[in-house]
């Protein structure tokens, strides 16, 4: 939204005053708002339990927001979840897929679920090669795959869906450096195709390398959001630690959820 070039376009992914309080009273997401435009990569940083995955779950309508809403291509996800989901692809943290299916079988199944029935075997082969999965394992069952190989399959599935928005939940967790590098390159290519990408990650360096906007979440709140240009020259790690420390010591946040409560 800060970029002038995309200002006229409609945001692809949008969170508006998003709040989620669980049944047990834990405030997981607290009044979070942001947008991701087509051709943008939005990276959410934050520690465990910061609310990153909850935000993604809200986008996927796995959870109902307590207040506020998420929109995908203008469609409010909890109103018309099925319509909204036509526009997104999702890569989960630690992709498992079906262990007794081969890579191709997994791809075929998910592509069909994504409404893509036109693909041929060659398309599957091509996309697997593109994500860096050697051809000799295309017809092997997934149960023998390493974490990185499974992750590549997950990304291939997301690519096959060819949706305008992609949600990634900790996509680089557990990848070796080479795989991580390949992945970042792939992500850049997808951005260049005009996809809006929302990813949550712990990996500050990769985030900095690729993201157009970097946000830091802590205890359900979006405590920092800057674009790549603003961050140029800053030590992101230092910044991150500062923000985390700052919000931790801030008295109103010592009781999680105490402050936001008054807003509801």
């Amino acid at each position: 939204m800060n970029e002038e070039s995309t200002a006229q376009e409609q945001p692809m992914l949008e969170a508006a005053a998003l709040t989620k309080r669980y049944e047990d009273g834990v405030l997981a997401v607290d009044n979070v708002s942001f947008t991701v435009m087509p051709g943008q990569i939005f990276a959410m940083l934050g520690g465990n339990g910061a609310g990153k995955t909850t935000t993604i779950n809200l986008f996927l309508n796995f959870l109902e927001p307590t207040t506020g809403e998420t929109r995908i291509n203008g469609v409010v996800t909890h109103r018309e979840p099925l319509k909204a989901k036509q526009h997104i692809a999702f890569v989960s943290e630690n992709v498992m897929l079906y262990p007794n299916f081969t890579a191709i079988q997994n791809l075929d199944f998910f592509a069909r679920l994504g409404g893509r029935t036109e693909y041929s075997k060659t398309d599957y082969r091509d996309v697997l090669l593109r994500v860096g999965l050697a051809e000799d394992v295309h017809h092997k069952r997934l149960k023998g795959f390493s974490k990185g190989m499974r992750q590549k399959c997950g990304i291939a599935i997301a690519m096959l869906k060819n949706a305008p928005a992609i949600l990634l939940d900790e996509p680089t967790a557990g990848l070796d450096p080479q795989a991580g590098y390949d992945f970042i390159k792939l992500l850049g290519a997808l951005r260049d195709e005009g996809k809006a990408i929302l990813m949550s990650t712990h990996d500050i360096f990769r985030a900095r390398e690729i993201a157009d906007i970097i946000a830091i979440m802590n205890r359900g709140r979006l405590i920092m959001q800057r674009n790549a240009a603003e961050l140029a020259g800053e030590d992101l790690e230092q910044l991150y630690l500062q923000y985390m420390a700052g919000s931790n010591s801030s008295p109103e946040n010592n009781q999680p959820g105490a402050g936001p409560c008054s807003k509801q």
């Binding site: 796995f62 099925l82 319509k83 989901k85 692809a89 999702f90 998910f110 679920l113 599935i157």
Partner: peptide, 9 residues
């Protein structure tokens, strides 16, 4: 999660 991330009722 992966399956239901698609438009599957």
């Amino acid at each position: 999660r992966l399956v239901l991330a698609n438009a599957v009722p």
